[in-house]
C-alpha cells in the first residue's frame, strides 16, 4: 500500500509525458514551444556536467537561504512572542517581507551584494522567511491557556515558559512554516540567480535567450526536483519530531 501511495502521482505524470512525446513526434506541437520529454532528457544527459554544477549551486544557495530563514525567522518569532510591544513594533516589517515582490528588489540586491552567492542567498532568505515567522508566531501565541496557567502556578520564569512550554507546544506550526519555506527558498534562489546569472536560474535565463526551450525545461525539471527534495527533507524532519508528540 505504501508503494501505491508513491505510484499514484506518477500516473498523471506518465499520461502527460506520453501525450507530449506523442504530440511532439507527430508535429502536433512545435518543438520550439514544447519539446518532447525525450529531447529534454537527452539534453540533460548530453550536458550533464553543467546541469549538475548548476543544480549543486542552487542546492547550496537554497540550503543557505533556507537555513538562514529557519534560524533568523524562528529567532525573530521568539522575540515577537516574548513581548506585545516588540510584536507591535516589528511584526509589520515581517509582513513587509511577504508583500514585497522579490523580482522587484533582486536588482537592488545585486547592487548591494554583487553578482554572486550572497545575492542568491539573500533572495532565497527574503522569499522564505515570512512563513517561518508567521507560523512560528501563530504557534507560540496559541499555547493552551490552561497549560499557561499551570506554568504560572508553578512559578515558571518567562524563559522557562517559552522554552519548556511555548516552543514544544508550537513545534507542529513551526515545522509547518519550515515546510512552506523549503519550497519558497528554491524559488527565491532561482529568482536571485536570474539576476546574478548563476545556478539553475542563470541556466534558465541563458537558455531562454538562446531560444533553447529544451534546456529551459531541463533546468525547470531539476529546480522542481530540488523543491521536492527540500520538501521531503523537512517532511521527514517533521515526522521525526512530531512522532514524539503523537497525540497533538
Amino acid at each position: 500500500m505504501k508503494t501505491m501511495k508513491f505510484l499514484y502521482p506518477l500516473i498523471p505524470l506518465l499520461l502527460i509525458t506520453s501525450f507530449t512525446e506523442y504530440a511532439s513526434r507527430k508535429g502536433m506541437i512545435p518543438t520550439f514551444l514544447l519539446p518532447a520529454p525525450s529531447q529534454v532528457f537527452l539534453v540533460l544527459k548530453e550536458d550533464f556536467g553543467s546541469f549538475r554544477d548548476a543544480f549543486l549551486q542552487t542546492l547550496f544557495a537554497s540550503s543557505l537561504g533556507l537555513g538562514l530563514s529557519m534560524v533568523v525567522g524562528l529567532g525573530f518569532a521568539l522575540l515577537l512572542s516574548f513581548s506585545n510591544l516588540v510584536r507591535k513594533m516589528f511584526y509589520p516589517y515581517a509582513i513587509f517581507f511577504q508583500t514585497v515582490p522579490i523580482i522587484a528588489i533582486a536588482p537592488l540586491l545585486v547592487i548591494w551584494l554583487g553578482y554572486g552567492l550572497p545575492t542568491v542567498v539573500a533572495s532565497a532568505f527574503i522569499v522564505s522567511v515570512f512563513p517561518v515567522i508567521a507560523n512560528s508566531v501563530l504557534g507560540l501565541l496559541g499555547t493552551d491557556p490552561l497549560l499557561l496557567n499551570l506554568f504560572k502556578m508553578l512559578d515558571a520564569s518567562p524563559l522557562q515558559t517559552l522554552f519548556r512550554l511555548r516552543v514544544p507546544a508550537a513545534l507542529p506550526q513551526i515545522l509547518g512554516g519550515f515546510k512552506i519555506a523549503a519550497g519558497l527558498a528554491v524559488i527565491g534562489a532561482i529568482v536571485g540567480e536570474f539576476i546574478s546569472g548563476s545556478g539553475l536560474g542563470g541556466l534558465v535565463d541563458t537558455a531562454r535567450n538562446q531560444q533553447r526551450v529544451d534546456r529551459v525545461f531541463a533546468a525547470v525539471l531539476l529546480a522542481a526536483f530540488l523543491g521536492i527534495l527540500f520538501f521531503s527533507f523537512i517532511s521527514f524532519l517533521n515526522s521525526l519530531v512530531l512522532g514524539q508528540l503523537k497525540e497533538k
Binding site: L146, N149, L150, M153, D155, P168, L171, K248
Partner: peptide, 17 residues
Amino acid sequence: QKNEMSFVFQESALLPW
C-alpha cells in the same frame, strides 16, 4: 507563597510531549 500551592485543574493539563 506560590511554591506552597498546587492547582488541580478541571482538565488534567498534562504536557502531551
